[in-house]
Each structure stands twice: as structure tokens, then as C-alpha cells.
């Protein structure tokens, strides 16, 4: 997990533009990835807007972040990711089951020359199918389990950090992860056996 230097946070709290930009440079990829993996493909066209809203909220509240309390700034940011994603789901009143959107240009991935997968179109199609299977499996989880899984397996947060982000005990985090993994193994048993 990327960590942010306290001095940088302090400078951002004083409104220094280069400090704010440095934090954005460090955190925008994990935040966008977490938003995308938590909300699913149907939010692909909005994922950057949602991530931007998260950052606006983070920096609106950055004065309330207390460095002395010892909480990692990144962990604190993930609490905003969690809360905002939950707000988005609540606002849309949409079911969180994946629709695996393929039905519009808006959902098409944006070509980025830095993206290794984008340079291998044939392989990318196969991988995309597998990705969709994983996404479907993730979407079948409850929101709490899915968030715990994404934060642990994709973002590498430790149990204590996930507990802080989600506001539950470490034991509950582990329990949720266990259930999430079990459900995913069942759903992806074919691929798990093949890949393992």
C-alpha cells in the first residue's frame, strides 16, 4: 500500500498546491482501481468522476486529519472511498449485481499506451472474459465482503487498516474475507483449478 509522508500531508493541509498534486499522483491509481473494482464495470464511464469526487471530499476534510493519531493517511483516504462508493450505490438505488456492460461505447475501455494489456488485443479479449467472470463473482458478494476483499487482495491493506476503513473489528474483517474467498473459489472453481 502506498503511504504518504506526514510532511506532505501537513503541507497539503496548509493548501500547498504542489503537495496536493503529489498526493494525487501517488494515490489516484489505487483509488480509481478500488472504486472500479468495488462498483463494477457498469460504472466504468463514471469511475474517474467518482474518484475525483472522493479526492475533493478528502481535501475538503484534510484539516480534520490528525497526524498525531498515528493513522496512515492512505487508510484515511480509503474511508472516503468506502463512504463515497456506498453513497453512490445508495443514490442510484441500483442492485450491486454485475450487469457486465458491453452494450455501449461509454463502457469501452479507454486506450492507454502505457497499458500492457491494451497492446495485446487477441489475448486481451480472452483475459477480458476472465476478468468479467471475476467481476461477476465479486458482484455476487455482499458489499462489505467485496470491499474487504478488494482492499486486501488488490490494494494490499492489512487487516488492521481494513478494520479502520470499514469500522469493524479485525476478527470481523477476517471473517468477511474468509467468506468472500470461499464464495469466489466456488464461483471460479474452474479457473482456480486451472490457474493453481
Amino acid at each position: 500500500m502506498t503511504d504518504i509522508d506526514n510532511d506532505l500531508v501537513s503541507r497539503a493541509q496548509h493548501g500547498e498546491q504542489d503537495a496536493i498534486r503529489a498526493i494525487l499522483e501517488a494515490l489516484h491509481r489505487p483509488v480509481i482501481a478500488t472504486v472500479f473494482r468495488f462498483l463494477g464495470t457498469r460504472f466504468r464511464s463514471e469511475v474517474e468522476d467518482i474518484a475525483q469526487e472522493v479526492f475533493v471530499k478528502v481535501f475538503r476534510a484534510i484539516d480534520r486529519f490528525e497526524i498525531e493519531r498515528g493513522v496512515k493517511f492512505t487508510t484515511w483516504v480509503y474511508t472516503f472511498v468506502r463512504n463515497h462508493c456506498f453513497d453512490v450505490l445508495k443514490r442510484r438505488r441500483l442492485p450491486t449485481v454485475s450487469m457486465t456492460a458491453r452494450d455501449g461505447d461509454d463502457d469501452a475501455p479507454v486506450f492507454d499506451p502505457r497499458d500492457e494489456r491494451a497492446r495485446r488485443p487477441v489475448e486481451s479479449v480472452e483475459n477480458q472474459e476472465l476478468g468479467e467472470k471475476i467481476e461477476e463473482a465479486l458482484a455476487s458478494l455482499g458489499e462489505d465482503q467485496r470491499l474487504a476483499f478488494v482492499l486486501r487482495e488488490y490494494e494490499g491493506l492489512d487487516y488492521a487498516a481494513i478494520a479502520q476503513v470499514t469500522g469493524v473489528s479485525e476478527g470481523t474483517v477476517k471473517s468477511r474475507l474468509h467468506r468472500a474467498k470461499e464464495a469466489l473459489r466456488n464461483r471460479l472453481s474452474r479457473y482456480v483449478g486451472h490457474s493453481a
Binding site: R29, F36, R114, N127, I134, E153
Partner: peptide, 14 residues
């Protein structure tokens, strides 16, 4: 869960 499997669910590049 295999890392290689999970990595197939890639997030879009910003």
C-alpha cells in the same frame, strides 16, 4: 486465490 487469476480483473488506466 491465485494472483494471476485476480490480476485478470484489471482496473482501467486513468
Amino acid at each position: 486465490l491465485p494472483r494471476t487469476l485476480l490480476d485478470e480483473y484489471a482496473a482501467p488506466s486513468p
